[in-house]
């Protein structure tokens, strides 16, 4: 009789479907398949797919590689902490360290060019939240995540830490400058 009593028909699984249920299940099933294949479609034709290229690393190894790039391509320093601004050539490997409580160094990239951005954390989990574009990537200690990025707009971007990492979490903000393409100065 009702949902809180045993079904009155012993063979309830033979009870016919009402049309409203059958129709809805068919529609919902088609929609589920569309959503499923949309993800696969985007991997083939979409331009925003997060790389899964990952290596095990240690903070010493990663820091050494990041330092080498900083030594080679630093163009100036900014802020009271003398944070280097690094402008590596297009197509190259660039490194960003997340640690309590900053992102280091500042990057200067060129619009329309592709870079291999290496991310890791020196201590706790951190979050790489690129603003105002709103691209968010988890940064996990011990793992070097290589994300291939192609900035499509020039301007000043901030990297906000959006994974809780302790009392100074709200001061953890980094920066990426994107310079306009030659002949397309805004």
């Amino acid at each position: 009789m009702s949902a809180i009593l045993p079904p009155t028909e012993r063979l309830w699984w033979k009870h016919p479907l009402d049309r409203v249920e059958g129709t809805w299940i068919a529609i919902a099933f088609v929609w589920c398949m569309i959503m499923f294949f949309m993800m696969i479609y985007w991997h083939m034709y979409g331009k925003q797919n997060l790389s899964t290229e990952t290596y095990k690393t240690t903070s010493e190894q990663f820091a050494a590689k990041a330092q080498a790039v900083v030594d080679k391509y630093t163009v100036r320093v900014e802020t009271d902490f003398q944070t280097p601004v690094v402008a590596p050539p297009p197509g190259s490997d660039v490194y960003m360290i997340a640690r309590l409580w900053n992102f280091w160094p500042i990057l200067e990239l060129q619009q329309g060019q592709t870079y291999r951005l290496h991310l890791t954390s020196m201590d706790y989990n951190h979050g790489f939240s690129l603003q105002p574009a709103n691209i968010n990537i988890q940064v996990v200690p011990g793992y070097e995540h290589v994300v291939t990025v192609t900035p499509n707009q020039s301007g000043t971007y901030s990297v906000v830490c959006n994974e809780f990492c302790g009392i100074g979490h709200h001061t953890m903000v980094g920066r990426i400058y994107v310079k306009a393409e030659a002949g397309n100065v805004q």
Binding site: T79, D80, F81, T83, N102, I106, G127, S129, Q131, P132, N134, S158, V160, C161, N162, E163, F164, G168, H169, H170, T171, M172, V173, G174, R175
Partner: peptide, 24 residues
């Protein structure tokens, strides 16, 4: 969240940050 505001975050004004970001 669509505008990017972080969860689990004490201060969206980033007081004390060297490179603060200004939310819209």
């Amino acid at each position: 969240g669509t505008l990017g505001v972080s969860r689990r975050h004490w201060d969206m004004a980033f007081s004390g940050a060297a490179l603060a970001y200004e939310w819209p």
